[in-house]
Amino acid sequence: MDSIKFEVHWYRRVFHTFGSSFLVYYIIPDTGWSGILKRLIPTLIILFVSILEYLRITGKISSNYFFGLRVYEEKRVGSYLFFGVAVFILLLFFPQQIAVPCILCACFTDPIMGETRQRYGGKNACIAGFFVSMFFFIATWYRADIWIRLLVSIVGGTSAVIGEAKKNRWIDDDFMVQILPAVFILILWRMIGLTGLEMLPSPMIHPI
């Protein structure tokens, strides 16, 4: 029983890091059939998972088939759907420069914070989460001016930690950790844009 408990814990962590695979979206060309498919496939996946989740909550499919589901998720939408919807929104509706670090935050900051919280407590988890998220923003915005990089990494890091730490029954932290920094940086980008400055660096990933 202890071994399975351990396995569930790591399974949830690996499910998070697996999410980084979705960045393959940006490698797929935007033109022709591949351009249509790259938008259609994520939409169909989200639709399929939403239907599956609806059937699970209404009891038509047993929750027993869903490995690693948390006890409180039995009667509400599972965190994996929140994670998927947030990735979907970021990929389709946000610029790549904003979406990439936010997805990385969900994939790596969340499990790192979880591990740190278990071993060293909540306060240290927030500190670790802040610096890890900051690193993702600094790394992905490496082409931007230094002051923009600092500003974006502080705003992104802070909002990612707030998003991870503040969860409630209706909105999961897997959603907030991605969307909150994305919305804040989007607002920042628009506001700085009003002054005539272009804040966004060039995209990191180029379609093949």
């Binding site: 690996v14 690693g68 589901l69 948390r70 409180y72």
Partner: peptide, 25 residues
């Protein structure tokens, strides 16, 4: 177990996803 639900059917689901979870990234 702790805060998560574990069962035999679920473990089967996990094993099906395992190669994808590890090799796709």
């Amino acid at each position: 177990t702790g805060k998560s639900i574990v069962n035999r059917q679920g473990i089967r689901t996990e094993l099906c996803f395992l190669p994808l979870l590890i090799f796709l990234p």
